[in-house]
Design a protein around this nucleic acid. Structure first.
Ligand SMILES: [Mn+2]
Ligand SMILES: [Mn+2]
Ligand SMILES: [Zn+2]
Ligand SMILES: [Zn+2]
Lengths: 138, 138
DNA sequence: ATATTATTTGAGACTGAGTCTCAAATATAC
DNA sequence: GTATATTTGAGACTCAGTCTCAAATAATAT
């Protein structure tokens, strides 16, 4: 699907800048990226999108469900494309920075149960496990 | 135990400022507090501890295991006293700000299992569930 | 197509939690 | 006590992210 149509299907008005940002993040090799990654990519590719608009756009895309904003404890937001990507959790290697996605249905089920037990209505959750990946333990 | 002895038992050199900060956070009614909460408390109580030292001290206490630093997605750190308080996770009500602590052995076990399966050596994890508490659903 | 109206953009100032610097003060070791 | 090592405070600084507001662009009406 073209980025313009993708934007429209998410109820986002299409502009040149938004299309540039979306095309950029879709073309990324790295699944997880920061605002600065997007900015420097656009600069390098000579796609003129201002700093303010880039941040605004990432925020808008996250609100509309095109992106997902993660907090990996780096002190700034990390994004991932949420299109065709269901919820999952993350392992974060503090040595090499690798991010491993995982999903465990049982954990999700027990979380729901924990909420029910406490009369808490969950809107979402974040589970982040930090440590050393396979390679970084050697 | 006196705050001075508590500091020493955690291998932290005792100074007037550190004792003030520790006495402050122990006396807090609210279990979870921000750096600014500590600063304004000290100011109000006429305990002179500079901004730099307050931040430094909260960081030091967290490193030494006296406090625990949480990320509840507010954009700044939230602390809790870690003395006599084992690891647990948090439910965070986005309406009233209430923080509910919980622990589910089964979830912890499954997390360990998920790490083992992926050859990941965990150093710790953060599980935060956001939503509405019992009162805020009405 | 043109005019009208609503939304978006860019430059750069601003915010605010947290850090850094470095000389002075204080704690510890001798 | 003196010497040495650590800590403190004032305030400058950092940096991801936000805000302002006039100009530009997009959507809508005619
Ligand atoms: Mn992911
Ligand atoms: Mn807690
Ligand atoms: Zn690694
Ligand atoms: Zn509530």
């Amino acid at each position: 699907m073209s980025v313009v149509r993708l934007l429209k299907s998410y109820n986002i008005r299409s502009t040149r800048q938004r299309a540039e940002v979306l095309a950029g993040v879709i073309s990324f090799k790295q699944r997880h990226f920061s605002s600065e990654d997007v900015l420097s990519f656009l600069t390098q590719k000579k796609r003129k999108v201002s700093r303010a608009t880039t941040f605004r756009t990432l925020r808008l895309f996250s609100k509309k469900g095109l992106l997902r904003s993660l907090d990996l404890g780096k002190g700034w937001a990390i994004y991932e494309v949420a299109v065709d990507s269901p919820h999952h959790d993350h392992l974060y290697c503090i040595k090499c920075g690798k991010i491993i996605e995982f999903e465990e249905h049982q954990i999700e089920r027990l979380q729901d149960k924990a909420c029910r037990k406490r009369n808490f209505r969950s809107l979402g959750h974040t589970l982040r496990i930090v440590g050393f990946c396979r390679e970084c333990q050697k």
